[in-house]
Simulated scan of single mutants.
Amino acid sequence: MTLSTPLKTLTAAVLGAMAFSAHAAEYEWTFQTSETAGEPQFEMKKQWAQNVETMSDGRISIEILPVGAVVQANQTLQAVKSGILQGHLTDPSYFTGQNPAFGMIGNLVGAWSDPYDFLDYMNNAGGEEIYNKLAEPYGVHLIGAAATGLESLPSSREIKTVEDMKGLKLRAPEGMVYNIFEKAGATPVNLPGSEVYTSLEKGVIDAADYTVFATNQAQGLHEFANYPNYPGFHSLPMVAVSLNKEIWDGLPEDLKAILATSVDSMAYKMVGELKTRDMEAVREARKDPNIHIVDMSAEERAKFRGIAQKEWKVWADKNEITSEFYDSVVGYLKGHNLLPDDAGQQSSDDKSSDKASS
């Protein structure tokens, strides 16, 4: 069959548009995450990249790589600055050695009992502005903050009290979380997340500050660490979604707005999905007679938070950014009745939360 001239023209236009859309990305970036390819958070971050491509009508194309694919987890900051990577989605605590403010903002241990409060602080109460004051001199711009949720604490020993932490060989990353567990009597060990499973299996460590309950369960950690603490009482790490600052500065305003909106959407979706996964994993774990979920009492949580608060003050004196962040976040927590003036007393919000979970 011979195509008519108008049909030929239309066919050529459609094929041309398809070819254009396949190669029309104005910006092609590679981002590295701090998760392995099998973790739920990794898949959520890949979905974010796909959403950015859709929202930008194909103008931005982002490849998401797992931890260690290009550089080690604690090297992505420099890799983004130098252009080896264009961005990263990672916990800023990995960069504590470069500036203590990364560790303090990345994981203010004991501060948050609800990830939505953390997101509200970062988005609406100055947290992201303070982070960019820290990060931009390193050549990186924070597009937006996300969070996984309160982490569980898988352990081969029962931890019902702060006293139970004495002598506990605990995997913890460098920075504030390491220091606070040390002050609580534990013996922290700095290991990469990729070694948590084998270290628990071989008894190199007794417990791990690692990630959320559902991921721990899916990775089989509870086979060796069958006394997981849940709900978590310690860590709620930030996920910094950042782009090379020169690239960010050169973007048109509409693409900046698309990126910021996409990160906010991912942040809230991630919290909701991981919370649902946690509840499902807890229900499944309770069916296993060998897994004993520990819910630390309100009084013991308050003791741990008291230790943490003292360490916050120590870190606040490290530099101008840590001081500014301390004043800002403590003001937010107290203003929202999330932090008592007395470290030994627990806010009414925390108490009601503990009653609800018991």
Rank of each mutant, 00 (worst) to 15 (best):
Leu3Ala: 14
Leu7Gln: 13
Thr9Leu: 00
Thr11Cys: 08
Ala19Thr: 14
Ala25Ser: 09
Glu39Leu: 03
Gln41Met: 04
Phe42Val: 02
Phe42Cys: 01
Met44Ser: 09
Thr54Cys: 04
Thr54Arg: 14
Met55Ser: 10
Ser56Asn: 12
Glu63Leu: 04
Ile64Leu: 05
Gly68Val: 08
Ala69Met: 04
Val70Glu: 06
Gln78Tyr: 11
Gln86Met: 08
His88Gly: 07
Leu89Glu: 12
Thr96Asp: 15
Gln98Asp: 15
Met104Cys: 05
Trp112Gln: 07
Tyr121Lys: 09
Glu129Arg: 12
Ala135Pro: 09
Val140Gln: 03
His141Leu: 05
Asp164Trp: 07
Lys169Asp: 09
Val177Cys: 03
Ala184Gln: 06
Leu191Tyr: 12
Gly193Cys: 01
Gly193Pro: 00
Asp206Gly: 00
Leu221Gly: 01
His222Thr: 04
Ala225Thr: 04
Pro231Trp: 03
Phe233Val: 15
Val241Ile: 13
Val241Thr: 12
Asn244Arg: 04
Ile247Cys: 06
Leu251Lys: 08
Lys256Gln: 14
Thr261Val: 08
Val263Leu: 06
Arg277Lys: 15
Arg277Val: 05
Met279Asn: 15
Ala281Arg: 01
Val282Gln: 11
Ala285Tyr: 02
Lys287Arg: 14
Val294Leu: 05
Asp295Val: 13
Glu299Leu: 14
Glu299Arg: 15
Phe304Ile: 11
Gly306Ile: 10
Gln309Glu: 15
Ser347Cys: 08
Asp354Trp: 14
